[in-house]
Design a protein around this nucleic acid. Structure first.
Lengths: 167, 167
DNA sequence: AAGTTATATTAGGCGCGCCAAACTCTGTCA
DNA sequence: TGACAGAGTTTGGCGCGCCTAATATAACTT
């Protein structure tokens, strides 16, 4: 069916889903604030999404997801959650950053990759007692490395100075 | 200095870097083919990048990266490589897909996250013999899971049916 | 040197997603 | 009921990145 949605359209869907979970009617204003854009932009986007049958939105009325829209939104949101978990729990990325970056990546990765990432998280947390603290081991290693020292267990260098280019 | 580059501009830089590694003069045509866009689009982008001092490009001449452009491009390329390795080697994502998805994500993640991901890969491959085959364990787990069966070692379910929404 | 071909650039246009300004509804409260 | 405030929409405009068509330059070929 419908071609692939743009990242932006996906963000609208996800936002509507999440706002709807506070079980209050979802309003244009709330979407705009949540996405930090203006109401006209939201109005316009909703027109697009309506035309694709993903949202229901009587003029001046409440915004709702259609069944298809909701399915999509939930998929996107799941992806988001998985990514956020990986970044925050495994890589120990700062919470704000993890949220932000997960939000960008969620639109990029295919279903297969997500399934694999989910499996990986499950593997690390649910499977085999003696593997379940790998992540903790990694966090120790990370601290040594951040301190610029060699890894105490294996001597893996702390100076692989991960090419911090930027700005 | 200069504000953040767009994903597209980053892609141009990375492409120029990679084409330059075949130590032949980099031409507009090659960039266009590599990115699967038309030459006018490349011309235009080069004008932008030139104005930011990231590429050198006499009219009708050879395209080169400036020192700053090269530094940026290398950073982007490093990010790409790390992501690609993670997707392909850890998650066992199909090679083509890994390349494509890494290419999208490389523009999104910050330096800190990349450092952490690099550290994670190093940790998995270099550190402590008895941890170095975690990935293999995971790959076994993944196969069971893909077959829809429970994990033989821990009983972790194969039916977590990772919400395959889509299409 | 002149013509042919390949490469590069300019010109003009399009879709997307955003904006500010102006206008229109809706609900509330004298 | 009528007027005001706040939410929502329409209008017109802008930047980015892409396109095709037309033009310009460079590089061969004879």
């Amino acid at each position: 069916m419908g071609k692939k949605l743009s990242s932006n359209m996906e963000m609208y869907l996800k936002t509507i889903l999440r706002l709807g979970q506070d079980d209050q009617p979802v309003r244009v204003k709330a979407i705009a604030e949540s996405l930090e854009i203006t109401m006209p932009s939201v109005s316009e986007a909703l027109r697009t999404l309506k035309s694709k049958g993903l949202v229901l939105h009587p003029s001046y009325g409440e915004v709702k997801l259609s069944a298809r829209g909701a399915r999509l939104a939930e998929g996107i949101n799941n992806r988001f959650v998985v990514l956020q978990r990986f970044l925050a729990e495994v890589l120990k990325v700062d919470e704000k950053t993890a949220e932000h970056e997960a939000c960008e990546i969620e639109h990029v990765l295919g279903a297969d990759t997500f399934m694999r990432l989910t499996a990986y998280l499950d593997f690390l947390s649910n499977c085999q007692k003696d593997l379940s603290d790998i992540v903790e081991h990694f966090h120790e290693y990370l601290e040594w490395r951040l301190a610029g020292e060699a890894c105490p267990v294996c001597g893996s260098p702390g100076d692989q100075s991960t090419t911090l280019e930027d700005k």
